[in-house]
């Protein structure tokens, strides 16, 4: 089932994916699709807007590199600021998720 992203979740997902290894646009989209098992699909408009915004905020840095297929592409990776951001966002999200689950598990 493919679904819309909840507001505010895209940044966290991208930070988490890029924490593992530097990736380029197509790679990020693929990885997102793969780890969420197709739940989240992202178009290039939202993807690149988010990447540029996060880079401007100093969470990501970018550099041109070569893909496995031998094409030139821009690779993004986490900065130190981005790593701290990932940690704090993760804590925040887990708090929310826990609260949500408890609420939903209340007996009818």
């Amino acid at each position: 089932m493919s679904t819309e992203l909840l507001p505010g979740t895209l940044d966290l997902l991208l930070l988490k994916i890029l924490a593992l290894e530097p990736l380029h646009g197509v790679g990020i989209a693929d990885r997102l699709n793969q780890v969420t098992q197709g739940t989240f699909q992202i178009g290039p408009g939202s993807l690149f807007t988010a990447l540029h915004r996060m880079e401007e905020k100093g969470w990501l840095s970018s550099a041109w590199g070569e893909t496995s297929a031998g094409r030139r592409a821009k690779f993004y990776q986490l900065t130190a600021v981005g790593r701290r951001r990932l940690a704090s966002e993760t804590v925040r999200w887990q708090t929310i998720a826990l609260a949500m689950r408890r609420t939903l598990e209340l007996p009818q």
Partner: peptide, 16 residues
Amino acid sequence: ADLDAELGAYIAEQSE
């Protein structure tokens, strides 16, 4: 120019 190159690479890879 950097943005154009980045997006161009994306489109190229997808259509490939």
